[in-house]
């Protein structure tokens, strides 16, 4: 690295910054990650307890458990917060490690599709068991 840093381009700081955007979406990503993290604190403990209760269960016991309205609600809340939190986290990882604009965009789209499909499959299954 240069001992004496210099800027060779004859453009002002403002001129260079203009158009790059304020980290794309500003505050929203950071805040949504914290909100979902806080929601997941109790929900993940509930999930861990549910998994323990349902270890070795047959399908009738599973349907009976998720068929209780509060369990269905908590599972759906868990699925919403979990997969939203996951998409936000994986987005950060992809943006940190994949540098080409095209490959980054493709990776982000593929990740979003995979997370959305997993979330929908989980939510529809809970609804089918509960309704």
């Amino acid at each position: 690295m240069d001992k004496n840093p210099k800027i060779t381009v004859m453009r002002s700081q403002l001129g260079r910054a203009r158009g790059l955007g304020a980290a794309k979406s500003g505050f929203h990503h950071w805040w949504a990650q914290r909100v979902t993290a806080i929601a997941l604190l109790p929900l993940s403990l509930y999930f861990v307890a549910s998994v323990m209760i349902l270890s070795g269960a047959d399908r009738a016991a599973m349907a009976g458990y998720i068929g209780q309205p509060w369990n269905a609600v908590l599972f759906l809340a868990l699925i919403g917060a979990l997969f939203y939190h996951l998409a936000l986290g994986l987005q950060t990882v992809i943006e940190d490690y994949i540098h080409g604009e095209a490959s980054k965009l493709v990776s982000l789209l593929a990740m979003r599709a995979a997370v959305a499909l997993l979330a929908l499959a989980s939510a529809v299954s809970v609804l089918k068991l509960a309704l």
Partner: peptide
């Protein structure tokens, strides 16, 4: 890793349904 683990969660719920 937990993100990959959510595949197991989805498989578990879809199988139950």
């Amino acid at each position: 890793a937990l993100g990959l683990g959510t595949i197991l969660l989805a498989v578990w719920l879809v199988a139950a349904a």
